[in-house]
Amino acid sequence: MTTLDQLRPGQFGQIVRIDGFDGIASRLREMGFIPGESVQFLRTAPLGDPMKCSVQGSRIAVRNGEARRVFIEPIAAPVS
């Protein structure tokens, strides 16, 4: 198990859990980061932070620090 910020561009992961119960964690959950869902790392911003990823069909920018709260299992292709 690793965290979202550790993926390489283009790589997929399946969400295992989100760390914490504060505003950031709730926002991540509301925006579709929930256990079982697949997430794809797309690219990092020009200055290295934040990063762009895709979850539930939408593109979401999260900071690397926030991506570290998303625990994932790297997978080859998205789960349908």
């Binding site: 950031i24 991540l28 925006m31 934040p50 593109r59 979401i60 920018a61 999260v62 926030e66």
Partner: peptide, 10 residues
Amino acid sequence: EVAPFVLELP
């Protein structure tokens, strides 16, 4: 502490 970012890119 630092505030969250989490922004949708439409």
